[in-house]
Amino acid sequence: MSSSILEDLAATIRSRRSADPAVSYTRRLIDGAPLKPAKKLGEEAVETVIAAMSESDKALTGEAADLLYHLLVVLECRNIDVADVLKELEARVGTSGIEEKQRRSTR
């Protein structure tokens, strides 16, 4: 999978800032920032964990998609570009998780 789908989805979410809240779930989330989208992200994270532990691969896939969508909404609410997150991930490629956590603790 290319990151372009995440960037495309982030652009769609950004465009929803000007959508009619009567017809746009994304706009209603954005209007409720920071609490509403953050709470929804937390709910989706829990649902993803539950699916990972006890549900089908299809259920986990659906919950993971929901989680990514809601994460992108939270990032949009904070004006954080998904490209910056992808750059951070790219910078971590080839670095062990232990090394990366040590680097974060010294920032």
Rank of each mutant, 00 (worst) to 15 (best):
G32H: 07
R14M: 05
K40Y: 02
R78L: 13
R92Y: 01
A59I: 07
G94R: 09
Y25K: 02
L6E: 05
R27E: 07
V93W: 08
A64K: 07
T61N: 14
L67A: 13
K40G: 01
A59P: 02
L29W: 03
T12M: 11
V23H: 11
A11H: 00
Q102W: 04
R14D: 11
G97D: 11
G62S: 15
G42H: 04
D31M: 06
C77K: 05
V82S: 04
L35V: 14
E7A: 07
R28I: 03
E55W: 08
D84H: 12
D66T: 03
E100F: 11
L35D: 12
A65H: 09
A38K: 00
R104K: 10
E88W: 03
G97K: 04
G94N: 09
L86Q: 12
E43C: 03
R14Q: 04
A91M: 09
Y69N: 14
A19Y: 10
L86D: 02
K40I: 05
I80E: 11
E63V: 10
S54D: 09
L86G: 09
R107Y: 04
L89G: 11
A91H: 06
E43N: 05
C77S: 11
L9C: 06
G94F: 07
I5P: 00
T12C: 05
A83H: 06
V85N: 07
S56H: 13
D8L: 01
L35A: 15
E63H: 06
S15I: 01
S3F: 12
I98R: 14
T61Y: 15
E7S: 09
S105I: 04
T48V: 10
L6R: 09
D84T: 13
E7R: 13
R78D: 05
K58N: 13
R16N: 11
A51I: 08
A22S: 11
Y69M: 11
I98V: 14
I80V: 15
P34W: 06
K36C: 08
E88I: 10
I98A: 15
T12S: 08
L35G: 13
G62W: 08
A38I: 03
D57G: 13
I98W: 15
D8H: 04
K101P: 00
A64E: 06
L29R: 14
E100D: 10
E47K: 09
L35Q: 15
A64D: 04
I13K: 01
L86W: 04
V73M: 03
R92H: 07
I13H: 01
M1N: 03
L29V: 04
Q102A: 15
E76S: 00
M53R: 11
L29K: 15
R78C: 12
T26A: 09
I80C: 10
A52Y: 11
K36G: 02
L71D: 03
A83Q: 13
D8G: 02
E44F: 02
E43H: 05
P21C: 04
S2D: 13
K39H: 05
K87T: 02
A91Y: 06
K101C: 05
E76C: 02
M53W: 10
R104P: 00
T106I: 10
L71C: 14
S105C: 01
E99S: 15
A22W: 02
A10V: 01
A33C: 10
L68D: 05
I50R: 15
P21R: 09
L72Q: 07
T95A: 10
A64C: 14
E99T: 15
V49N: 07
